[in-house]
Design a binder for these strands. Structure first.
Lengths: 161, 161
DNA sequence: ATCCGTGCAAAATCTTTGCATCTCG
DNA sequence: CGAGATGCAAAGATTTTGCACGGAT
């Protein structure tokens, strides 16, 4: 919506999923979904989504945002994630409900979170199924470490000294 | 400590780590650590730890349990984890801070959580480091799916019908 | 008219903090 | 003895819920 490009296709697809599940496409829900798409990979908390939605639709209530996020989670359009602070954050599941959730790389130095959409766990899941007889349906994987930028900064810092 | 076997060695090691980090060895802290060891793989919440500690040491306060859990987390004796409910749960890190955190298998049918102490991510970490230039220091991996017991139950259920 | 959705405010949870007192080392 | 730890209660923070009203079919 706003100035920069909005993934209309994706928005429509989500609206369709809401509709097919019997939910109405209210302005509040549309505004919430738009904010999520505009901040894709932003890993926003409920409060952060609320603040962004409120810029465009000032009359919306925080409870409505919570209720919408809950619906979107149930429909597997979103996944709830949580990193360093205890806050629940919401992450669009672009891969769809039929694929496994994407991975995250969390930099413990700058806090940045990078997404990995390639599924790196196919082999590991085979081991889990064969060795532990556990039938995998999904996964959540986060690597903690130092991102490329911080590695570079750290090297530069060392050279100065 | 109570009726069943208590891992004295592990308790001592944790007390030593507390001591070396400059913390006092109070009865409350000992009771908290004991409850955690007795309920290893229990993935207890703060409230659940509190209730268990209170059985042995009725005068302890919930705030003290929170403060102790926070200290143990900082010392990497515990890891905070979170599964289906939003609650923060505490998981003893037996592998120590020098190894990567163990994996979890969460059964979405019965809610049981199984631990996998073998590190299945060595190859994947190599890919992450080479392909994404991300220097991995730790990871958190949870598989969702159906545990062996539920698979069996489901098969038996199907045969009846 | 009916059903669903909404905003507001209150309630419910979970967690942290301030402070007087106590205790380990 | 003194710094750190504790218990209690109060405050904070986050999330859920109750309820009357509103809007679309």
């Amino acid at each position: 919506m706003g100035g920069f490009k909005m993934d209309e296709q994706y928005l429509k697809s989500i609206q369709q999923q809401l509709h097919q599940a019997g939910f109405k496409l209210t302005p509040q829900r549309e505004a919430t979904v738009c904010s999520l798409i505009e901040n894709e990979e932003g890993h926003l908390s409920a409060e952060e989504v609320y603040m962004r939605v409120k810029e465009k639709s000032p009359d919306i209530g925080l409870a409505t945002v919570y209720r919408t996020l809950e619906i979107l989670s149930e429909l597997k359009i979103l996944d709830k994630v949580s990193f360093t602070d205890g806050l629940i954050r919401y992450d669009l599941r672009r891969e769809g409900s039929q694929h496994h959730f994407h991975h995250h790389l969390l930099c413990t130095q700058c806090g940045k979170i990078q997404e990995v959409h390639e599924d790196l766990l196919l082999d590991v899941e085979r081991v889990v199924e064969q060795q532990f007889h556990f039938q995998v349906t999904d996964h959540k994987l986060t690597f903690q470490g130092i991102c490329m930028d911080c590695q570079r900064k750290n090297r530069e810092q060392q050279q100065k000294q």
